[in-house]
Simulated scan of single mutants.
Amino acid sequence: MARRIYKKELTSLLEMITCQRDDLKINDGDSTVYNELITKEILLTFPDAAYGVLFESETEFKSFLKQVTSEGETHPLAGVFKNETDFQHCLETAKLQISKFLKINEPALDYSFESLKIIDAGIKKQKLNFEDYSTNLYKYIICYIGMVIIKNQEGEWKLQYIEQDSLLEPYVWLKKGKLVDVFTDAYSDAYEDWNNFSVYTTAHLRIDSLN
């Protein structure tokens, strides 16, 4: 079963790499590095990210990829943000949309890390499933998590547009020189273990991995 690898264990596994498997890349724009270890496990690492994802075998990775691929869309942001204008609109309305969908008071969403717990409680109270989340909340959660990090860690938005795939990837650039991916974990953590998914925990793990 795939699992996320951090810090010390990741450093140890990097020393076990025998080759890079470019044949596993999803497309030419895929920036993920696919590493094969001496144990035949597959370790995925990502630019400017202090974590990796470990698969027990190539077979397990391909099975996972097949499972998450839907109608040719393999990127969690496929179809989420049409362009920068659309992203800015989502950013401006994130608090309103989250509060309406989860039936919580908008003023409670004050961009503090603690306010992420209110979102978690709202998700549980409304008994959402992953489809509800990915369809109605995901893009606003990306925006809200990003703003929480910006206001508490001193940063700014850095948008990357992948033209060939028509994808807009929103990152947060911290003043201390770290680039924060605010969209991958918000999707993969929810997809992999919806029943235990926590927006608060996901955001904290992402920040902790950069320290």
Rank of each mutant, 00 (worst) to 15 (best):
C143I: 08
E73G: 02
E36T: 13
E106P: 00
E106D: 09
L65T: 01
E60A: 12
V182A: 09
L13Q: 08
T85Y: 01
T59M: 09
K178Q: 08
D185I: 00
S134Y: 09
V172H: 10
A50P: 02
M1Q: 10
F183W: 07
N152R: 06
F87D: 03
K124Y: 06
Y140V: 02
N136M: 06
L167N: 00
L116P: 15
D165I: 04
D132W: 07
G79D: 02
S99G: 15
K151P: 09
E114A: 15
Y161F: 05
T85H: 02
W157E: 14
K103T: 00
D185N: 13
I5D: 11
P107T: 12
N195K: 03
N211E: 07
K8F: 09
I150Q: 13
K175V: 12
P47C: 02
N211I: 07
E192R: 05
T135R: 12
Q67G: 00
I118W: 00
Q67S: 03
L54I: 10
S198R: 09
Q164E: 04
E131W: 06
L137K: 14
S209I: 05
E154K: 15
I142N: 13
L43D: 13
L205A: 05
N83E: 03
S134K: 10
I17Q: 09
L174H: 12
G122N: 04
K125P: 00
A190W: 06
T85W: 00
G52F: 07
E92F: 03
K125T: 09
I145Y: 00
N195A: 04
N27C: 04
Y187T: 03
Q97H: 13
A2Y: 08
V148D: 15
L210G: 02
T85K: 05
I42Y: 10
F64K: 05
T39F: 13
E169I: 07
T184P: 00
N136D: 09
G52S: 10
I104M: 12
L65W: 02
N129P: 01
I98W: 02
E9N: 08
I142K: 11
I149M: 14
I119D: 01
F81V: 08
N129D: 07
D22I: 02
W157L: 13
F46H: 07
F55R: 08
K127R: 05
M1I: 10
L116I: 12
T45G: 03
